[in-house]
Design a binder for these strands. Structure first.
Length: 559
RNA sequence: GGCGACGUGGCCAAGCGGCUAAGGCAUCGGAUUGCAAAUCCGACAUCCCGGGUUCGAAUCCCGGCGUCGCCUCCA
């Protein structure tokens, strides 16, 4: 009566080939990851429409998929990752009008902003960043094919996708087509039915446009992703990602276009990351829904101004004076990065599972900072003892190349044994739908193991490689490096560990003030040995003290 | 109205039928320390409520309460 066979049978063989499981929005369940053409993996992430500066919410997907690519690569796959830049769109046109500058210029500016932010967050695994406007021809061709095959129809300069022709429409987002096709009748005069969506939009007089068989116009939203993913990854690729908010209509429509055009599935795995919410003091955002009104009167509490924060409560950039901005200091992403460092933001994002909602607020970021400090302190400690920088340790870039791969060499040494077990736990977490939160918790365990090892072996600054436990520390740190690198963390030393954007020069000035004051006190109390020691030490690191009747100033020596 | 997610210690957050319910922040003890910090050891939850299925549920099902998202542009 026991179900033992199921668990027992896999025990021996499974160890050799760890199975990665991925949550697929299409099937609403976790599936074994089996790419179409192993070891190659094609991955497409829907990038931004570049009409405004990006905000922190735009970073969630890139950080997650950057990590996914890192992990898959680490496991031996060869991943090609494409992120599109949508640089034609109604919003861009609107911005262009508003600011009185060409659409293309806005796109260039905002793309640069986006990329700069990605870089700060350590997102550097993207292979291709195609722009929609560079692929107009392909887009037109794509639409032509759809028209030829009868899935789309032209209607006075526009071209629409005929939703009724796709029996699978609605599958991804779990919507019924007849529901959408409903009675609505003639919602838009040009469409056959209200659910149809534009593939090509005819140009109005002063809008940017490109020639096409249907006259001058521009691509509709969705089609650029179908065309570009096809151009770079082929008819069917492995992973298609994006925010949960893109499931409908964006991905549903992409899927319809692509599968109808090619007669093949667009992607094997549809992965969607959770959205971010601003977690202000009270409650946040959400527009007042129909129905929500009834009980509002009695709770006088919320009256202050909890009104519409806008749909995207996270868009602090535009919340000029609202309570949201006050509670977290207004400003865009770049200011956020400056205040918290990109690494902190990345760490913060990775601590939550990618499919859940992340509540974003300063408290969370501060906590992340505190937690991260434990790592930075260990790196310092490690460097003191071994005279090696943690950041320059050779990290195994492949799972099976690890110093502790499959637990080898871990038998005799308790520390290594513990680390090997922890590493296995980490890998299990990552194998299970990229559970970065659980993986990071293991990292803290490793930190404790390593610190305990140092304490117990009494390793101190200037230790020798012949000292007991020295080699173990080295090996252990390498493994920690290996596993943190997979998450894209600790690539390079932080300017000021945990300092949170303290300006370097200003910081140095503050320190110097303290030292000068101490030396002054030493001199006053005739403790000249101490005073000289301070000055000599400073000289040793390139700082000269200049005494005068007005006090003491300092300068750095030119090298 | 339709679709969907979530509710785990003071806070954040893993867990997806069965080891002592991860980890972080905070708090409280202890070791260490000239003091402090850091580090280490230890303490701190039966999982929104009510039913049900099961030998066994935080984990599955039903009902309730609550929070949130999508259905329109959105990562």
């Amino acid at each position: 009566m026991s179900t033992a066979p199921a668990t027992a049978s896999s025990a021996s063989s499974a160890a050799a080939l760890p199975e990665i499981r991925v949550y697929n929005t299409l099937s609403k369940s976790k599936e074994p990851f089996a790419p179409l053409r192993p070891p190659h993996v094609g991955m497409y992430l829907c990038g931004p429409t570049v009409y405004k500066e990006s905000h922190i919410g735009h970073m969630v997907g890139p950080v997650i998929f950057d990590t996914i690519k890192r992990y898959l690569s680490y496991c031996g796959y060869q991943v090609t990752w494409v992120v599109n830049i949508t640089d034609v769109d109604d919003k861009l046109i609107a911005q262009s009008r508003e600011r009185g500058i060409p659409m293309s210029q806005i796109a260039v500016e905002m793309t640069a902003d986006y990329l700069a932010n990605l870089r700060e967050l350590g997102v550097n695994q993207i292979d291709q960043l195609p722009r929609a406007t560079d692929h107009i021809e392909g887009i037109v061709h794509f639409i032509e094919t759809l028209v030829e095959k009868g899935y789309a129809y032209a209607s006075s300069g526009d071209v629409f996708f005929d939703v009724a022709r796709d029996p699978n429409y609605g599958q991804l987002s779990n919507r019924l087509t007849d529901q959408m096709l409903g009675d609505g009748g003639g919602a838009a005069a040009k469409k056959r039915s209200p659910g149809d969506f534009a593939l090509w939009k005819s140009a109005k007089p002063d809008e940017p446009s490109w020639p096409s068989p249907w006259g001058n116009g521009r691509p509709g939203w969705h089609i650029e992703c179908s065309a570009m993913s096809h151009a770079y990854l082929g008819e069917t690729f492995d992973i298609h990602g994006g925010g949960l908010d893109l499931v409908f209509p964006h991905h549903e429509n992409e899927r319809a276009q692509s599968s109808c055009c090619h007669g093949a599935p667009m992607a094997k795995y549809w992965m969607h990351n959770g959205l971010m919410r601003a977690g202000a003091a009270g409650k946040v955002g959400g527009r007042s829904d129909r129905a929500a009104e009834s009980g509002a009167a009695e709770s006088g509490a919320a009256e202050g101004g909890a009104t519409t924060e806008g749909l995207d409560a996270v868009a602090i950039e535009e919340q000029s004076a609202g309570k949201i901005s006050r509670s977290k200091g207004a400003g865009g992403l770049s200011e956020l990065i400056q205040r918290h460092t990109g690494e902190r933001l990345r760490f913060f994002l990775l601590r939550t599972h990618y499919r859940s909602t992340i509540v974003f607020n300063d408290e969370g970021l501060e906590e992340a900072a505190t937690a991260l400090d434990a790592f930075y302190r260990f790196f310092d400690r490690f460097e003191q003892i071994t005279a090696r920088s943690f950041y320059s340790l050779p990290a195994a870039r492949w799972r099976r190349a690890s110093a502790l791969a499959e637990g080898e060499g871990a038998d005799a040494d308790a520390t290594l044994a513990a680390l090997a077990a922890q590493r296995a736990k980490y890998l299990d977490a990552m194998d299970d739908d990229f559970n970065t939160g659980a993986a990071i918790s293991v990292l803290f365990d490793m930190l404790r193991t390593l610190n305990r090892h140092i304490d117990q072996q009494q390793l101190a600054a200037g230790a020798q490689s012949s000292d007991a436990g020295f080699e173990t520390l080295l090996t252990g740190a390498e493994v920690l490096r290996e596993l943190t690198a997979v998450l894209g963390l600790f690539a390079k030393p932080q300017a000021a560990a945990g300092g949170g954007g303290q300006d370097g020069a200003e910081f140095a000035a503050q320190l110097m003030e303290i030292l000068i004051e101490l030396r002054k006190q030493a001199r006053t109390s005739k403790n000249f040995a101490m005073a000289d020691a301070i000055r000599d030490s400073l000289t040793a690191c390139g700082v000269s003290l200049l005494d005068s009747k007005d006090g003491t100033s300092w300068e750095r020596q030119r090298s």
